[in-house]
């Protein structure tokens, strides 16, 4: 139907397994150490009729050089809250309560938490890092904690608060690919080319 959003075609033509494979392939084969990749999917808001970017899919890899006993920046209370949320989400997905001392009770790192809360976010056209990239049809590449912190985009500052040093948003067909890393990764055209090839859904 013509009333459906452009993004619907991706869901039909490229199921979530395919999206996942592409996101995973993008950062598992990269020379850079990306912590996660997210596909923000463009759709039309039913009420306003405006374009909006919402969660399409994501792949969390984690920090490659993360020591086993990292002291998280999160306070004890915050850590307990994260574990409780994760436990509840786990129960919701599996349909059964997680057993005591399950893996779900392991420390929830800052970047894991940032990735999780990303699932609840959406961006109006032109707003936030993904919205800006889509609106201008130009990549946004923020490298360095200071640049993330100085950004007027809440998502960039939030990411910095969770230990990210680099956030990149690259427009693709029907959405935006976001890459994030706890390491400093300077802009390079290889990454942008790779995204364009991997997420050119028309080919």
């Amino acid at each position: 139907p013509t009333s459906s959003s452009a993004s619907t075609s991706i869901v039909n033509d490229f199921n979530q397994d395919t999206l996942q494979q592409r996101l995973q392939g993008l950062i598992d084969t990269a020379r850079e150490s990306w912590t996660y990749a997210i596909f923000w999917q463009s759709s039309i808001d039913d009420y306003s009729g405006h374009s909006v970017l919402g969660w399409g899919d994501g792949y969390y890899k984690g920090e490659v050089n993360k020591p086993k006993t990292t002291q998280s920046a999160a306070s004890l209370a915050e850590q307990q809250y994260r574990k409780r949320v994760l436990r509840e989400l786990n129960s919701m997905i599996s349909g059964t309560p997680a057993p005591e001392n399950d893996a779900v009770d392991e420390e929830v790192t800052d970047t894991e938490w940032f990735f999780l809360i990303s699932m609840t976010q959406s961006f109006a056209n032109g707003n936030g890092l993904p919205g800006q990239a889509a609106f201008n049809n130009q990549p946004v590449w923020l490298a360095g904690s200071d640049r993330l912190l100085a950004s007027h985009c809440e998502r960039a500052r939030q990411g910095q608060g969770f230990g990210l040093q680099t956030i990149v948003c690259i427009p693709s067909a029907d959405g935006v690919i976001e890459l994030g890393s706890t390491e400093l990764i300077l802009q390079n055209s290889d990454v942008m080319k790779k995204v364009r090839v991997s997420f050119d859904f028309n080919n």
């Binding site: 993004s7 869901v11 999917q41 994501g58 989400l89 997905i93 392991e106 999780l116 699932m119």
Partner: peptide, 26 residues
């Protein structure tokens, strides 16, 4: 049902599964 909540649920399930694998192997 909208595709977005479905996508979130699938992503969440995958994230939790991979997390369990990471924790078990560490």
């Amino acid at each position: 049902q909208s595709a977005v909540p479905q996508a979130r649920k699938a992503s969440l399930a995958r994230f939790l599964e991979k997390r369990k694998e990471r924790v078990m192997s560490s």
